[in-house]
């Protein structure tokens, strides 16, 4: 059988061949990401890590690729096994725990994060599931000016779920 033209993506079994250059791997990784081929992206990230263990970009790419490939459990164990590296996966970890409905753990993981739009959004979604509507709505109040797409959908849900449906119209007007 003729060799496939793209077999440089696979780790070469023969030790005589040098491993692919890291720049080439990142180029191919970037292409997989652009094509939303997250399964391949995770594999190439693994290849980078076999050459350069602890490479922050590769670890991040792998975690994000696993999440986007709906492999939440794998993403979490990747995060767990990266605990020795100095960078912070608190937000990703909290997101994975949220997806597994481990809501208290997710909140705990978010606590150590600096407050920004991403962490606040995630926190509000966790609080919504926990039924803590007042705290949830406090966050949407704070996020009103941050121009996040579709945030009015979740804000309406929060108002309705907390029995404040009469405020929906006014909230939508202020967002406009």
């Amino acid at each position: 059988m003729a060799p496939k033209p793209k077999d440089k993506l696979k780790p070469s079994p023969s030790s005589s061949q040098p491993p692919p250059a890291i720049e080439d791997l990142f180029t191919s990784l970037s292409k997989h990401i652009q094509r939303s081929d997250f399964e391949q992206a995770a594999k190439v990230a693994d290849q980078v890590l076999s050459i350069a263990p602890g490479d922050e970009d590769a670890i991040r790419c792998k975690v994000v690729a696993l999440i986007k490939d709906d492999r939440i459990e794998d993403a979490l164990s990747m995060i767990q096994s990266s605990q020795k590296v100095p960078f912070d996966f608190g937000f990703f970890k909290a997101y994975c725990l949220y997806r597994q409905n481990k809501l208290d753990e997710a909140l705990e993981s978010l606590k150590r994060q600096e407050g920004n739009s991403a962490t606040m959004l995630l926190e509000s979604q966790i609080l919504y599931r926990l039924g803590k509507m007042d705290a949830c709505m406090d966050i949407y109040q704070k996020l009103q000016k941050s121009k996040i797409d579709s945030i009015e959908i979740n804000s309406v849900a929060g108002l309705v779920a907390s029995g404040r449906a009469s405020e929906v119209q006014r909230m939508l007007d202020t967002l406009r």
Binding site: D24, T27, S30, D57, C61, F92, A118, L121, L122, N154
Partner: peptide, 19 residues
């Protein structure tokens, strides 16, 4: 309720890591 936090799960920029 939409999972809006998902949109903030982003890949790092690889611009400087490519050839």
């Amino acid at each position: 309720v939409l999972d809006l936090a998902y949109n903030f799960i982003e890949f790092p920029s690889l611009e400087n890591r490519m050839k």
